[in-house]
Amino acid sequence: MTTIEAYVEFGTREAHGVSPTYERLSHAVAHDGDLLALLDTLPPGKRQPNLLFGVVRWLGGPVDDPVAFHDYTVAHWPAVEAQVLARATQTNEAGRCAVLLPVLAALPQPLALLEVGASAGLCLYPDRYAYRYGEYEVGDGTPVLECAAGGLVPPARVPQVVWRAGLDLNPLDVTDAGDVSWLEALIWPEHAHRRARLRAAAAVAAADPPLLVRGDLVDDLPALAARAPADATLVVFHTSVLYQVPVARREAFVRLVRELPGHWIANEAPEVLPYDGLPDPPDAALHNVLALDGKPLAWTRGHGQAMTWFG
């Protein structure tokens, strides 16, 4: 996919109807020769809209006006480039726990959770949050995660988690103000509810920090999985992570995770982790596929705001 195509798709399929600011900005960048020329000097994995927009916001630049964004980014390109190369889109969206919950609650309890690409580990606390699926509520923690769910009966209770660990090339620390400020910069401009949710989830994690290990999803996964308690069901999971992993490495991870004891939950875009015989998605927006042990179960939206069950 070319840089132009990536920005058009982001605006059309991800930001449309979700963030007017980023929808407008994505299409502007796709037609901005100066910015495209600068972006194309970066490694392909570093040209993505979320990363560029997040870095400019983190540096204090404007994203609400495409002309001002152009002027700032061109004028400050050395600083922007340095941060783009140093950082990753480690969006740690606790809302994704709402689409994981139906699967987690149905597995043999208690659970030992191991998240690949854990960022700051906020998705390792599905037992500490509360959920609202339409009129149905489950759990009594904070934040309350809302999800429009079709085609399934929501779970009656949250899972029992007795061990939680995360693996990440660059784990973030929710007790570090700089790390939290980067997570906030990755939240889309209009999404005040997600910023409030991030702060509430960060408080949960900071009160009982998870085990976060700096490491590679292939080389270091077996050793971390071996640390899980034997009397709990091991669940290795990841959500919107594998698109950042080269294809060969991605395939090696899939082979490895299938060999581990316990279960594997994937929540990734269908072009990143393909499946045969998927039904059509509910609409033209970008969806992930939620799968258990390689079996697809549901279409999900990227921030956990909706899911359509078909499994």
Rank of each mutant, 00 (worst) to 15 (best):
P20D: 08
A226D: 11
H238K: 03
L152T: 05
H238Y: 07
A196W: 00
G61Q: 09
R258A: 13
P210H: 06
F10I: 01
L107C: 06
V272L: 10
I265W: 01
M1K: 13
G33E: 15
A177C: 09
T91E: 13
V99H: 15
V180E: 12
D276N: 09
T21F: 05
V245L: 11
H27Y: 05
A88E: 11
G17P: 08
G17K: 08
H287M: 06
V153Q: 15
H16Q: 08
D293W: 08
A30G: 04
A225Q: 05
A206H: 10
P270R: 09
D293E: 08
V144G: 13
T308S: 14
V272Q: 13
N267C: 15
A148W: 00
V162W: 09
L152A: 14
V84H: 10
V247W: 09
Y275E: 03
D65T: 01
G141A: 07
S119G: 09
V138N: 13
M1P: 14
S19D: 14
E271K: 12
H70Q: 11
E81H: 14
L51H: 09
A185Q: 12
L124W: 02
H31M: 06
G178W: 13
A28M: 04
H238A: 03
H76Y: 04
L114V: 07
L278M: 07
G45I: 00
G166P: 03
D64R: 15
G302S: 04
T73W: 06
A269N: 11
V138D: 12
G294A: 08
P261L: 07
V153L: 11
V218I: 06
L145T: 01
D127H: 15
A98G: 12
G121S: 10
A156N: 11
R197K: 04
R195D: 06
A201C: 05
A225G: 12
A148F: 01
R195G: 13
F10N: 02
V162K: 14
V213A: 10
A165C: 10
E81N: 08
A284P: 03
D176T: 03
D173C: 12
P143D: 12
Y129P: 02
T308A: 12
R132K: 10
F310K: 06
E93F: 05
R24T: 04
A200G: 09
G33V: 00
A201W: 04
Y22Q: 09
R249E: 15
E251Y: 09
G54K: 07
R197I: 00
